[in-house]
Design a protein around this nucleic acid. Structure first.
Length: 582
RNA sequence: GCGUUCGUAGCUCAGCUGGAUAGAGCGACGGACUUCGAAUCCGUAGGUCGGGGGUUCGACUCCCUCCGGACGCACCA
């Protein structure tokens, strides 16, 4: 469909520039011509507003539209119908052609919608990056779905993608949970308390609050523990390793559950010292300077900021130093063309500075670094707070959703049809959360209302899953219907609803490309909702299997299959499980 | 104070590089299951697109300003 649009645009463009020349105006003004989609398909499939040309031609936009239309009528042009609507030159593109083309394209199955927009591009994407002192929460789920989904979308656009996870396994917060465990743990293990191992660790982190009340020195002791850890103290490292293993194993369990995976893990404990040499190098070549107090800094005045310390006066490194070294280290590991950081928008400053410094150090790839900045997930009463216990835990959330989905299955009496109710409920739960998180514009903060946000009706993941299940159900019954003996005839699909569906199916690859170019899964989510909802209306209004005309029935079913391909592929890109039955 | 960012229906969100009457879902109210799955569909009510200027043939979209919120402005990560 894209080439048809382009064909029309060129035809109109040519006609317009000719006309401009005749009016002795600059033909280059034709570049102002924009192609848009009319509000309703009854007005046309594509439209060209003529306002921008009015002044140069000294004609009313409506007259221009008429003149251009006449000119186009009398020459070779792409097939379709021209309709002038006031100042708009609208085109009804040749439906049969597009329908036939679309039904053919969809035969690519799981590959339908893949583009080569990014082929040959190596993209590294970092996301999740959990701390090992507590389990994942709702915020991580947003990060994870954005990261995983973006990675899948980039791959679908032909990119070579490497997903990485930087585990934050060192630092004062880790020491706090260790200290707390040393005090209250009594060498117990997760299985002794029947807890998921990351929750087990997290509970000790929370209990550090109790520890502070008991022992005012607790904060200092945690600091001492960190020094011991950095000094390589063996007992400390033993405990550290044990607790980190618990945390990481538990977190990985959640990844498995949500369908998130990584090609490579980096552990902060192994890389936090990298970057020191880079800072030295930068100092030597004049990119950085040594301040009076002995610390090494970078001047940021050219990007409107002040200065930033990169190495303390005692020579120890800071967060920026680490990230600096890590980026360079990663490029050596895997020479990417682009590096995407999926990190909350609170760190905008950090990345702005980081990218600037890397560029200043002369790394050619530095201009292709991208901070996929996303907003916080807030509760109706405000931000989630660990100490107030309002953090929405990922596993707990999924469990309670699963329970709701299960109730739904039971209340509809569908446990037989569904086969495995447990598994189905789990997939519905995942569909609900992932859709909810993916549908919002990444950069914006969002509000999560535990009571209302995760319903299964309306604009939700399960709604889309349901449409997939309905089509799947029809396909299972195909053999017993009229369509079994019919043949597919694109010209029979003449209803407005059918045309709207075809356009949505045909527009899917563009949505994938759009989502990829902008690192924005939400455009894909809304495209899927549009198509699911169009299908639902269609399904309601028109008989498909029950259609008496066998050719019409077969054609309609083919259209539904096309919709199904889009739903399946799109859900996959959004990390939402597809369900044959639900 | 400075910077970034957001402010669209009661609530949660869309609105493509400015274009034809601002769209969904939830909630409210009213309808539709002897028919392909009602986790569905249809209808009604609900909006000075935070306020005010400006640019433009045209502004939810761009610019300025004010108001309000969030987040940054660490030798914490």
């Amino acid at each position: 469909m894209k080439n048809i649009k382009d064909g029309w645009k060129n035809a109109v463009l040519t006609a317009v520039s000719e006309l401009l020349a005749e009016k002795s105006a600059d033909p280059a003004l034709a570049a102002n011509l924009v192609l848009e989609t009319p509000p309703d398909s009854e007005m046309g499939d594509i439209g060209f507003p003529m306002f921008p040309l009015a002044k140069a031609m000294r004609m009313s936009p409506a007259d221009i539209a008429k003149t251009v239309a006449n000119r186009l009528e009398n020459r070779s042009r792409p097939s379709g119908k021209i309709k002038v609507l006031g100042p708009y030159l609208n085109i009804f593109i040749n439906r049969e052609e597009v329908i036939a083309e679309t039904l053919e394209a969809v035969k690519a199955g799981a590959k339908y919608g893949f583009t080569d927009a990014l082929s040959g591009t190596k993209i590294m994407i970092e996301f999740s990056s959990p701390n090992t002192n507590k389990p994942l929460h709702l915020g991580h789920l947003r990060n994870d779905v954005l990261g995983e989904s973006s990675a899948r979308i980039l791959k679908a656009n032909g990119a070579d993608v490497m997903k990485i996870n930087l585990i934050n396994d060192r630092g004062i917060h880790i020491c706090k949970s260790m200290l707390s465990y040393m005090k209250y743990g009594a060498n117990r293990e997760p299985k002794d308390e029947g807890k998921k191992s990351d929750h087990f660790v997290g509970d000790y982190y929370v209990r550090f609050n109790d520890l502070i009340k008991e022992d005012p020195q607790a904060e200092e002791k945690a600091q001492e523990l960190l020094v011991k850890w950095e000094g390589g103290d063996s007992t400390t490292h033993e405990l550290w390793k044990k607790m980190n293993d618990w945390a990481v194993k538990g977190i990985q369990n959640t990844y498995k559950r949500t369908g998130v995976s990584f090609d490579k893990y980096y552990f902060e404990s192994q890389v936090y010292l990298t970057g020191k040499e880079e800072v030295q190098k930068g100092l030597n070549n004049g990119a950085f300077f040594r301040a009076e107090d002995g610390s090494i800094r970078v001047d940021l005045s050219s990007i409107g900021l002040e200065e930033k310390v990169l190495l303390r006066k005692d020579g120890t490194s800071i967060y920026m130093t680490q990230d600096l070294g890590l980026a360079i280290h990663r490029h050596k590991d895997w020479p990417f063309d682009r590096l995407v950081y999926v990190v909350a928008n609170e760190q905008q400053y950090h990345f702005k500075v980081l990218f600037y410094i890397l560029e200043k150090l002369g790394y050619s790839w530095a201009k292709n670094l991208y901070h996929l900045s996303y907003g916080l997930v807030n509760l109706p009463e405000g931000r989630m707070k660990t100490r107030e216990g309002t953090v929405v835990d990922a596993d707990t959330l999924l469990d309670s959703l699963k329970e709701l989905a299960m109730e739904e299955i039971l209340s509809k009496g569908r446990e037989e049809q569904v086969g495995d109710p447990e598994l189905t409920a789990e997939k519905i739960a995942l569909g609900a959360v992932h859709y909810y998180l993916a549908q919002a514009t990444p950069s914006k903060d969002m509000v999560f209302n535990p009571k209302e946000s995760l319903s299964f009706t309306g604009n939700t993941g399960p709604y889309i899953q349901y449409m997939g299940a309905r089509i799947s159900s029809m396909l299972r019954k195909k053999a017993d219907s009229a369509s079994a003996n019919g043949s597919i005839k694109p010209e029979l699909l003449a209803k407005k609803t059918e045309w709207d569906l075809v356009k949505l199916v045909a527009g899917y690859p563009e949505a994938v490309e759009d989502a990829g170019q902008n690192y924005n899964p939400s455009v894909l989510a809304s495209h899927l909702y549009d198509i699911a909802s169009s299908f639902s209306r269609y399904y309601h209004d028109e008989p498909i299997l029950n259609c008496p005309d066998k050719d019409l029935s077969a054609s309609r079913l083919a259209l539904c299959e096309a919709v199904l391909v889009v739903l399946k592929n799109g859900l996959e890109l959004l990390c939402i499980p597809f369900l044959e039955v639900m």
